[in-house]
Simulated assay, not measured.
Amino acid sequence: MKLTHLGHACLLVETDVRILVDPGTMSDFAALSGLDAVLVTHQHPDHLDAGRVAALVAANPGVPVVVDPDSVAAAAGLPGVRVARPGDRLTFGGTTVDVHGGVHATVYGAVPGCTNNAYLVDDGAFFHPGDSFAVPPGDVDVLAVAVDGPWLKLAEAVDYVRAVGPRVAVPMHEGETVHPEKYAGMLGAFTPDDIAVRRLNRGEATGL
């Protein structure tokens, strides 16, 4: 599997297919081609930039756009939209994607919540939780973990990595962070030694 971090929470996952997760406003994905699926965890603009995704779909004719239930309105007008819910299993080529999660982590006070899909690729090869602390059943090889946002503190990210126990933790959700490398460093400092914290270079495909 190869991963490319395209900014913030947006990751290109390459197995036998090319799957893009969370193309939002702080991500660079416009030039991508040959996509087999686009997965959206939730409706917030930093995870779904509907206008730019429309152009992306036009450049990748027929690509399905999979969204959580509350993102349907934000994705209105996009071709190929499919709604997925926790418990669903999706198949793209020889790659499976199981839907987990269900709810966005609490932001603050009375800020309204929303649905949030978490996506498990190939029975644990990769897990993208969106803006949640969803823990999938079974082992996870590579975990994408948010390190910054109004809904979390870094200690919670550390606890989440410990709860999932992946081989590799990849920091994400850092688009508003001035020094994201420092957040990744702190995550690594408090993570058990048997879990590698690996910050990906933006735009560079990395084998994991």
Score class of each variant (00 low, 15 high):
1 M>Y: 15
4 T>M: 06
4 T>G: 00
7 G>D: 07
8 H>M: 01
9 A>N: 14
9 A>G: 11
12 L>F: 05
13 V>M: 07
13 V>E: 00
14 E>L: 11
14 E>P: 11
14 E>R: 14
15 T>D: 12
19 I>S: 05
21 V>G: 04
23 P>F: 13
24 G>C: 12
25 T>E: 15
28 D>N: 06
29 F>M: 10
33 S>C: 09
34 G>Y: 07
35 L>P: 15
36 D>V: 00
39 L>F: 09
42 H>Y: 07
42 H>T: 03
44 H>L: 09
46 D>K: 08
49 D>R: 01
49 D>T: 10
52 R>T: 02
55 A>I: 07
57 V>W: 05
60 N>D: 11
60 N>A: 02
61 P>I: 02
62 G>F: 13
66 V>P: 13
70 D>N: 03
71 S>E: 01
72 V>C: 08
72 V>N: 09
72 V>L: 15
73 A>C: 04
74 A>Q: 06
74 A>G: 01
75 A>M: 06
75 A>F: 06
77 G>Y: 05
79 P>K: 12
79 P>L: 10
79 P>E: 09
82 R>Y: 11
83 V>K: 03
83 V>D: 02
84 A>G: 03
86 P>G: 08
87 G>H: 10
87 G>N: 06
91 T>F: 03
92 F>Q: 12
95 T>D: 02
96 T>P: 13
99 V>Q: 14
99 V>I: 04
99 V>C: 15
103 V>A: 11
104 H>C: 11
106 T>G: 08
106 T>Q: 15
107 V>Q: 14
109 G>L: 06
109 G>E: 07
113 G>K: 10
116 N>Y: 04
117 N>K: 11
119 Y>R: 10
124 G>E: 08
125 A>W: 12
125 A>G: 06
126 F>Q: 03
126 F>H: 03
128 H>K: 03
128 H>F: 10
129 P>D: 05
129 P>T: 08
130 G>D: 05
131 D>C: 14
132 S>L: 14
133 F>W: 12
138 G>S: 06
139 D>N: 10
141 D>K: 15
142 V>T: 11
145 V>F: 13
147 V>I: 14
149 G>M: 05
151 W>E: 09
155 A>D: 13
156 E>G: 06
158 V>F: 02
159 D>G: 03
160 Y>F: 15
161 V>R: 08
163 A>E: 03
167 R>F: 09
168 V>M: 00
173 H>I: 06
173 H>S: 13
174 E>Q: 14
176 E>G: 15
177 T>Y: 01
178 V>Y: 11
184 A>K: 08
184 A>P: 00
185 G>Q: 02
187 L>I: 00
189 A>F: 05
189 A>P: 09
191 T>M: 04
196 A>V: 09
196 A>Q: 06
199 R>E: 12
201 N>D: 15
203 G>I: 09
203 G>D: 06
204 E>V: 15
205 A>E: 13
206 T>L: 13
207 G>R: 09
208 L>R: 00
